Simulated assay, not measured.
Amino acid sequence: MSTELVEILKKEFESRPLSKDEKISIINKMITILDDNQISQVIESLKKPFFNSQLNEYLIDSQMPEIDSKEFDFLVQAAKYHGNIVRSLMNEAGISNYYIDRFSKKYHLKTITNKTLVFPSKKIDAPFLFQKQYSKSVISHESALYLLDLCDVIPKRTVMSMPKGYKLSQISDNVLQSSWELYNGQKSLLVRYPENDPLVLTRSDPIEESQILIKETSEGNPVRVTTSERTIADILRPNSCAEEESKVEAIRRYYDSNPGKGQRLRRIAHKEGVLSELDRYLWSLRLD
């Protein structure tokens, strides 16, 4: 350690109480002069307090399991998805159904479906859980507008596009509560999870992976959402029930936040058969 750094640290520690940011700055300075073995020792010493902080809300009586145990791995995965448990994700992380069932009993998890559970103190993240169970689903239409910041209206339900050939009746048999309704002029499935706005499952033309991106739900979990261009194309279709105000606002915001990408939007609109409708809006808004 340089003499200069020693003097700085000595002066800082002796002169006054340090703020958290100042302490972090000092630690960063110290880390730069440690060798690989010393850094490994520091990491090892910080593991327990770090994981105690990260996992505390999931623990029973603040009892942390051994860091190299299956129970610890289970809790890490639980925290990663904010208390929402998907069996397939746990299996991918090396945690078998035997351990899932065992720890589910210990931590009093609530069963949502036969493939999903949630910690009792956590909110059910319906869009996330549904997509993990039905991987072809994509948040779209008015729901995507909000997640993409193309409108300020908070949707009262989450629209999910499903492939046209998907048998929605099979989903109806595997969820807790469902009913049928018309959405955009076609028969769609309304799925309800406890403490969540309903999901509306509607059949859709194929959605290419290039027209899908990852966003976060209000609970902080990753979900698949149609891109801005595909979303605008979807709400411009003749059978769309999107409000006129939402269409205008979405197109205006798209051009404000994506300068120079108008041709991309027109290209997707042409591909989806709504270019003439888009051009009508662009002309009225003087955007193109």
Rank of each mutant, 00 (worst) to 15 (best):
P206E: 00
K106Q: 12
Q54W: 08
S53R: 13
N52R: 13
L176W: 02
A126Y: 04
V86Q: 01
S140C: 15
Y166N: 06
F130K: 00
Y107A: 11
I268L: 04
R252V: 09
P259L: 01
L285W: 08
Y255S: 01
P49D: 00
P127N: 08
I124A: 08
E44H: 12
M160Q: 09
I212G: 00
S257H: 02
E14K: 13
T158M: 15
N258D: 01
K261F: 02
E244G: 14
E272Q: 09
I8Q: 07
L89M: 14
L75K: 06
L182Q: 09
N28A: 07
R87Q: 14
H270C: 09
P65D: 05
T116E: 11
I214N: 02
D173Q: 10
N37Y: 10
D205H: 12
V200M: 14
M1A: 14
K105W: 13
K29E: 08
L9G: 05
V86G: 05
I39P: 06
V153Q: 15
S88K: 12
R286S: 15
M90F: 15
S204Q: 02
Q211S: 13
L190Q: 14
P238G: 00
R237W: 12
I212N: 03
K80C: 06
K156F: 14
S169P: 00
L109N: 07
I171M: 02
S69N: 03
Q177E: 15
L109H: 11
N221A: 14
S161C: 04
K70M: 11
S140N: 08
R264H: 10
F74A: 09
P222D: 06
E12W: 07
Q133A: 03
L34V: 08
V118Y: 07
K271R: 09
S2R: 13
L150E: 01
S210K: 13
N91K: 10
Q263F: 06
K10E: 04
F130P: 00
G260R: 01
F50T: 04
F72I: 03
K123D: 08
T217E: 00
R280E: 13
P194D: 07
N184C: 12
L5F: 06
R230C: 07
R286E: 15
